[in-house]
């Protein structure tokens, strides 16, 4: 177990280094932030001063080394635009994205699990076929378009729910106030759409597989009621893969909330990164991606460990 963890940590470190290098070079190749950041009517002296202040006068490899030096001390640089530490900037926006992602996960489970269960138990019924067709839409409809449709129907025409912003917050969280909660609904559904489809398909195939197992037949041979067989014997078995995938998907939900946050003007990390890319605010871009990578590494590790806890037959030694 310890060997496994050490190896995983070392691998993660390599990923982080590679990641930062790629982003650094990538942003450098995309364009010169100086052109965007410094007002066009500034004179030469002002320009030169600004460039030195941002540390952009040095060659790229030196800039990278300075970045690494600072990063090792926990400092991921200052935003060119806000002149605040990039890390702090991102962490401020984190609760917004977190609650959006968690809201989406809750929707995915609350909607996906029952629908998938139904589709798996009655695979030939019309309802099941409709659900499966619907899940294909969930996979293939573009998020931004669905977001716009949601706004048009529920915010503009029906006027039931607000379409922009986080509403009232309590201790930085929207879901703690009724008004904030109402702001959270539409973006959560929008972000959940893909995951609902995923959970439906996972659950359905899990149910169909499990129903054929001998232990389900044995459970029926014991004279258990249909409900007991379904909700205890089948359900508990399909929960393991569903929990695993939903857990792993949490990372990508946070990372890809960019589109939803833009459509609903949700002031989270996704909106921040899009704005930062627009003005080539390199410290923020790098810091954001580092955090996302770190998050993926941690989530994967936690899921791996959880799996070995859930199922004692799984051992984490050797491989990895």
């Amino acid at each position: 177990m310890t060997v496994y963890l050490l190896r995983r940590l070392f691998q993660s470190l390599l990923v982080l280094v590679a990641m930062s290098l790629i982003v650094f070079v990538g942003v450098y190749a995309v364009g010169d932030p100086v052109e965007i950041l410094i007002s066009p009517d500034a004179d030469q002296a002002e320009r030169a001063r600004a460039i030195v202040a941002l540390g952009l006068d040095k060659p790229l490899w030196q800039q990278y080394l300075v970045f690494v030096q600072n990063a090792l001390r926990g400092d991921l640089g200052r935003s060119f635009v806000y002149n605040e530490p990039a890390l702090q900037l991102i962490l401020q926006k984190m609760p917004a994205t977190m609650e959006l992602a968690l809201g989406a996960t809750v929707f995915a489970i609350l909607v996906g699990l029952p629908l998938g269960l139904y589709a798996g138990l009655h695979p030939d019924s019309g309802g099941a076929k409709a659900i499966m067709a619907g899940s294909i839409l969930g996979f293939s409809l573009p998020t931004f378009w669905v977001g716009l449709m949601l706004i048009m129907v529920f915010a503009v025409q029906l006027g039931w729910l607000p379409s922009t912003g986080r509403g009232d917050t309590l201790w930085g969280w929207s879901f703690l106030t009724p008004n904030g909660l109402s702001h959270l609904v539409l973006p959560s559904i929008n972000l959940a759409l893909f995951k609902i489809s995923l959970v439906i398909r996972l659950t359905r195939s899990g149910v169909r597989e499990t129903m054929l197992m001998d232990y389900v037949k044995f459970a029926r041979a014991k004279g258990l009621s249909r409900n007991r067989v379904t909700y205890v014997h089948v359900f508990k078995n399909i929960l393991i893969p569903v929990v695993t995938v939903v857990g792993l998907e949490l990372g990508s939900t946070i990372a890809f909330s960019v589109v939803t946050e833009s459509v609903f003007a949700w002031p989270g990390m996704g909106k921040l990164i899009i704005d930062s890319i627009n003005v080539l605010d390199r410290p923020v871009i790098v810091a954001y991606l580092m955090i996302i990578v770190l998050m993926f590494i941690v989530i994967n590790l936690v899921v791996d460990i959880m799996y070995s806890v859930l199922d004692p037959r799984v051992r984490l030694e050797g491989q990895g």
Partner: peptide
């Protein structure tokens, strides 16, 4: 009426 199955590795639910 009770029944006993062929493969004992498969008849008991692994998660219960």
């Amino acid at each position: 009426i009770a029944m006993i199955f062929q493969d004992p590795m498969m008849t008991l639910n692994p998660v219960l």
